[in-house]
Design a protein around this nucleic acid. Structure first.
Lengths: 204, 204
DNA sequence: CCGTTGATGTCAGTCACTGTCATACGTGGA
DNA sequence: TCCACGTATGACAGTGACTGACATCAACGG
């Protein structure tokens, strides 16, 4: 429950994204973010374990959502199918905040230490997925392998989804300049997951 | 070429592993490592980009080895088969220094920031594997997916291989205490890869 | 014997992050 | 109405990771 100015956490997250986008991650100090959000540096570190973590606030929710969706999946589904169901559910969260996801992805792509943290979150998602599969009665190493495969699909599908958003933006620019082009809507995340999963199955 | 006492780099790596194993990663400062290796802290950071990197000196070699092995694989092989061939070649490097690999793995497992770095190295290996597959004429997204799958096999197989080394050590202890037990040799890394790859294929 | 090159030592400085204590806010009870 | 109490914050000092600039020293070529 916040007293003082409400939503200090949200203000810090927004300030951080703005500053990282403008000047870059390294050129922004924790003090800069705090000042821009109207708090002190100490308060920043009370809310976030480190400077990078301010960009990963939604990851726990994403993890919980996928975990729950896997447990809710029909019993007849194979381990991989169930895991992919969880991935699709998680993808729904991203589609709800497309703009935020795209902006955030650009920031993360710009600095290795942020990619490192992103990989750690994906690894946590893999763990949580494997755990959910265990609860469905899947044994090792099938559970771990299905979890890794599903998160791979998430990872690759996300990259393609982001790229499509950028393409779409460029296409809109072109259209604004009067060029002829078939203006398809950009693919939904679910479409990307379906395509990627199909390509994975075609691999063997 | 080093003048002064030779192999400063190697001395720092050994000192770091010893200290990390004794006191833990956080309780060891970069200055401690440098002093223990007979150099200054500044020299440590000239050799390693950061404190964690001292544990990842072999990763470039591992990456190059797998990349080259993939290019050298027979043309008839499927993308995934070729990628797995690279993984097996990389595994050879680990078997050559089993003791070192086991010790290092224990240290990395003990601290999240080291796991983060390990994941970044695995991601680099994935990139490099995908690039090698591109050079073999594999298109996207098949190349990325095969690369991710192969690295997943590496990851899971490595974990099982390490666990088996530990089991084997425990078993030797038991044997020394006079218990009856069939004393099988611990599985080779290649065995682990074969098992894990089979389990992956069985997933669909 | 001297100049060059590359690895190292020295030192000052920034910034991420932490521990500690004081303080202000809002809540529930006397 | 006022007073304890828990919680979020401010203030401040301190450690350690990492960097930049400059001096130094060992081998090597000429």
């Amino acid at each position: 429950m916040g007293r003082w100015e409400p939503d200090a956490r949200g203000r810090m997250i927004r300030a951080a994204m703005d500053l990282f986008a403008e000047r870059g991650f390294e050129q922004t100090t924790a003090g800069d973010i705090a000042e821009s959000a109207g708090v002190t540096e100490r308060t920043f570190f009370r809310h976030f374990a480190d400077k990078r973590e301010v960009l990963f606030d939604g990851s726990a929710t994403l993890e919980r959502t996928t975990h729950d969706a896997i447990l809710a999946a029909p019993d007849e589904m194979s381990p991989l199918e169930a895991a992919l169901t969880g991935i699709v559910a998680g993808g729904g969260l991203l589609e709800q905040r497309r703009e935020h996801a795209v902006r955030r992805s650009r920031i993360v792509a710009a600095h290795p230490s942020l990619q490192e943290r992103e990989l750690l979150k994906l690894a946590a998602m893999t763990e949580s997925t494997a755990k959910a599969l265990h609860e469905r009665g899947v044994a090792e190493p099938a559970a771990s392998l299905a979890a890794h495969s599903a998160v791979t699909v998430f990872h690759v599908a996300f990259a393609r989804w982001i790229a499509a958003q950028d393409d779409d933006a460029a296409q809109s620019d072109d259209a604004a300049h009067g060029e002829e082009r078939d203006t398809e809507a950009p693919p939904s995340f679910v479409d990307c997951v379906a395509d990627t999963a199909a390509a994975l199955r075609a691999l063997t």
